[in-house]
Design a protein around this nucleic acid. Sequence first.
DNA 1: GTCAGATACTTGACATCTAAAACAATCTTG
DNA 2: CAAGATTGTTTTAGATGTCAAGTATCTGAC
Lengths: 167, 167
Amino acid sequence: MTTRPAPTSDERIAQFHDEHEHEREALRVWLRLLSCTTLIENEISTRLRREFATTLPRFDLMAQLARSPNGLTMGELSQRLMVTGGNVTGVTDTLERDGLVERLPMPNDRRARIVRLTPNGKALFDRMAAVHAGWVEELISGLGEPERRELYRLLGQLKRGLGAAGG
Amino acid sequence: MTTRPAPTSDERIAQFHDEHEHEREALRVWLRLLSCTTLIENEISTRLRREFATTLPRFDLMAQLARSPNGLTMGELSQRLMVTGGNVTGVTDTLERDGLVERLPMPNDRRARIVRLTPNGKALFDRMAAVHAGWVEELISGLGEPERRELYRLLGQLKRGLGAAGG
DNA sequence: GTCAGATACTTGACATCTAAAACAATCTTG
DNA sequence: CAAGATTGTTTTAGATGTCAAGTATCTGAC
């Protein structure tokens, strides 16, 4: 095993600066990531309100249900939407009030409730989804196909790292 | 100018598929972007609550003020935080209540009010910012230095495109 | 069988967010 | 200088989000 000499004063200063430089760089990446997401989110949110008189959380919940025709429990929705159960209860309440989703009892577990799109909800979502996909395509059009693939890859790498670091 | 023959039936189908494939690809990029941002945001939000009994909107507002020692007007804060004025009013209210920021009259325009960190607010923010930078560095550690630079570059390109498309 | 602990959801208190309207001060224009 | 448009902020109503506490149900050890 090789011994490592204690860093000189200059080396310590360099390490200090490097560390801070590295942190600043990470901050810049994070702020730009947040900025892009917020800009897109605000734009889609505005358009959803204007064109369909609905909101992004409602659209997202319906999108999850559209992918699961047999419905999802409140807990599954909570996990997939990455929000708390209390929140899912509230959004589901208003969607149910508007006749777009329905709560059904779960056969083998009376604690759980299955949420499912109603026919009206499914029809509305299909219309919204088609328009929404066009909006996203438009908003991302600043990137060509190779850039999109590269961005997708880098975000995947970031996401895998988050699972390890975050929780 | 060369005339282009009408597309055959097969070509139309191919275009239709291509367009949808392109949209699906854009959607995948957007969903992953949103997912990464949400994961990081939730993690930082949880840590801010646990370690400093504060929230991300409060931290973000204080961060803007920390970069402008002379203070900012409510409108400037609204722009930089990309939220509505009404929201800035609310968050500023609670920060003021807690003695972390203060509202001052603007000398040449009595409509506007300047918001500034108090000494207490500045001291608290400095402590939080140092820890926060470490968290971001940790959360992004799944990416090496070249990947971070490439991600930063791609997000910059995306952001410029958003200015053109979104509004 | 029963009872403690885990699980699924709802509720309640509060902070954040938006859009839209209200208000107040300033600017513009005649 | 006065009328009207503009600008900066706050207020209001409603949706979304958290956490913590409460209710109902399920599960498993005894």
